Simulated scan of single mutants.
Amino acid sequence: MEENNLKNKKAFIILLSSQLLFLLLLLPWFLFAGLSVMMFDTPGSERDVTTLTIFFTILAYPLGVAVSILTSWIAYARSRYKAAYWCAGIPLFWVIPIALFWGYALLS
């Protein structure tokens, strides 16, 4: 007889699929991160706090994905499924604003 080691199959599938999506989004992130250095074309922009904040926020996406994966699986292992869902959504802080920006750019 086979033993099922999954604590919660639904949570497992949701966590795994969301994290695979965010890992796949690392591919376009490389292009996006490379192009983000163009924000510093204007003289003096390297001292602009807003530009620096946006730049370092873009660069932090892989760290956000890594933290999301680590914390969501820790919460899953402790049977804290709601916390695991919230932790799995950490990369949305990067994905949603970019999606809204692209949507606005395409519709205007």
Rank of each mutant, 00 (worst) to 15 (best):
D41E: 03
F93S: 12
A66T: 14
S72G: 08
V65C: 12
T71S: 15
A33G: 02
W86V: 14
T42V: 15
L25A: 05
T57D: 08
L35Q: 13
W86N: 13
G34N: 06
T71I: 08
G103A: 06
W29A: 04
L15C: 01
L106Q: 07
G64C: 13
L21Q: 00
I14R: 04
T57H: 08
L106H: 02
L21E: 00
C87L: 10
K9D: 09
A99M: 10
G103Y: 00
R78D: 15
Y85N: 07
F56N: 05
A99S: 14
L6N: 08
Q19D: 09
G44N: 08
C87Q: 13
A66H: 09
G44R: 05
V37F: 08
V65W: 07
I14L: 11
I14F: 05
E2L: 11
I74K: 11
L106Y: 10
I90T: 11
G44W: 05
L16Y: 05
L63K: 02
A84Y: 02
L107S: 15
Y85P: 03
G44Y: 03
I90G: 04
M1H: 10
K82P: 01
A77Q: 14
Q19V: 00
L24A: 13
C87H: 13
F32H: 12
P28H: 00
I74H: 10
F22P: 02
A99N: 00
R78P: 02
S18M: 14
V67Y: 12
E46M: 13
A84H: 03
P62A: 08
F12P: 00
Y85A: 06
K82D: 13
G44C: 07
I98K: 07
A77P: 02
N8F: 02
I74D: 08
K10F: 12
L52R: 10
D41F: 06
Y76R: 04
L20Q: 04
V67E: 05
A75Y: 09
L92C: 09
L70A: 15
E2D: 07
G64R: 11
